[in-house]
């Protein structure tokens, strides 16, 4: 009884909060700043540098949206959120959008009432083992001790995978990624498992990264993407199509280097013209200026540039495009057409 009254009060408060924040775009424009939720720190995805400027893969999505809406990629107030506080921060209206390597799942979309506007990184759970273990496939891990973060989906995925393959393992529960690195290096476990991007980032910090290998098996789907609240579709469209603009720009060969030339006058590719606002009224339909996509792309470059700058092969993290390549290159990135 008591819980139901309490939950009822929560729901009412949630509805009031949702109703008050119906026109997010107007609020953002009036405020002159975008409140964007990011992680408190994840290598390559979001972290402040020594001058306090945020940088990273997720951060650039925030900057692109700010550039599209307000014309200034710096007009972002980054709100760091933890895994525990991120959803309440979004639901309560403290932030306008969340770009925090959040996995798109059914229950988060439907039950928590959020709208995932797309996927900016296709991740999956992988395994890392020391080279001298002599293992080349996860199916050979029978009886291994596995370091795993408690309370995450990776824990459940691991149990599912090992049970369906009928092999045994011994979990070593740990709390944070930092602790996991130390435990793994100290030899407390044979295997460390978490998202493949996280494994690559972790391995990059080792003194001898070459002594460790990532196994080829990816045992789960972790589509990470930005999300907004349910109920404000105009705002959801703005974030969705800003992300699509970055992806389309790469597909069409629009980069931060040539965007000034391309947007100066209509060229001979009509889709580029529509994207950059030299033709058609796409910006107007969104309630933005005609050069919204141009600003978004100019903020940090197209999707490929953002990827290479933050987590690509030239960085210490050294992730290859893999699933995150354009559909034309055999990846999964596929933006609906700008028409």
């Amino acid at each position: 009884m008591k819980t139901s009254v309490f939950l009822g009060a929560l729901t009412v408060a949630g509805i009031v909060a949702g109703g008050a924040a119906a026109a997010t775009m107007d609020e953002v424009k009036a405020r002159g700043k975008l409140n964007c939720g990011v992680t408190t720190g994840l290598v390559g995805f979001a972290a402040p540098d020594s001058n306090g400027n945020w940088e990273g893969f997720d951060v650039d999505v925030c900057r692109a949206v700010a550039a599209a809406v307000l014309g200034d990629p710096q007009a972002v107030e980054f709100v760091p959120t933890t895994g525990k506080t991120r959803f309440t921060a979004l639901a309560s209206g403290e932030i306008d959008m969340l770009a925090r390597n959040t996995t798109w799942t059914f229950s988060r979309d439907v039950d928590l009432k959020f709208t995932f506007v797309g996927v900016n990184y296709y991740d999956g759970q992988g395994f890392m083992v020391p080279k001298d273990l002599g293992v080349s496939s996860a199916t050979e891990l029978d009886g291994a001790t596995v370091c795993i973060q408690t309370g995450t989906t990776t824990e459940l995925n691991l149990a599912d995978y090992f049970r369906s393959n009928n092999i045994s393992y011994e979990p070593v529960p740990i709390e944070t990624n930092a602790e996991a690195q130390q435990q793994y290096l100290a030899g407390a476990c044979d295997v460390y498992t978490t998202d493949a991007s996280g494994l690559a980032a972790t391995r990059a910090t080792f003194e001898a990264p070459g002594d460790h290998v990532l196994l080829p098996e990816i045992v789960s789907k972790e589509p990470l993407g930005p999300l907004v609240r349910h109920g404000d579709n105009e705002w959801g469209d703005v974030v969705r199509w800003t992300l699509n603009a970055l992806i389309t720009a790469e597909e069409l060969g629009v980069t931060s280097a040539n965007i000034a030339d391309m947007s100066a006058a209509p060229g001979n590719n009509p889709e580029i013209n529509r994207l950059l606002g030299t033709e058609g009224t796409l910006g107007e339909m969104l309630g933005l200026s005609a050069d919204w996509a141009k600003n978004a792309i100019a903020a940090g470059g197209n999707y490929g540039e953002v990827f290479e700058k933050n987590i690509g092969e030239a960085t210490p993290i050294g992730l290859s495009r893999g699933l995150n390549a354009q559909w034309t290159d055999g990846g999964l990135l596929y933006s609906p057409p700008f028409r």
Binding site: G41, V43, A46, A47, D49, S50, A178, Q182, T202, A204
Partner: peptide
């Protein structure tokens, strides 16, 4: 502690210094 666990350890430069 929040600074150490969050921004500093998450920067590409200093990840791994505990």
């Amino acid at each position: 502690v929040g600074m150490i666990r969050g921004p500093i350890l998450a920067s590409t430069d200093w990840n791994g210094v505990y």
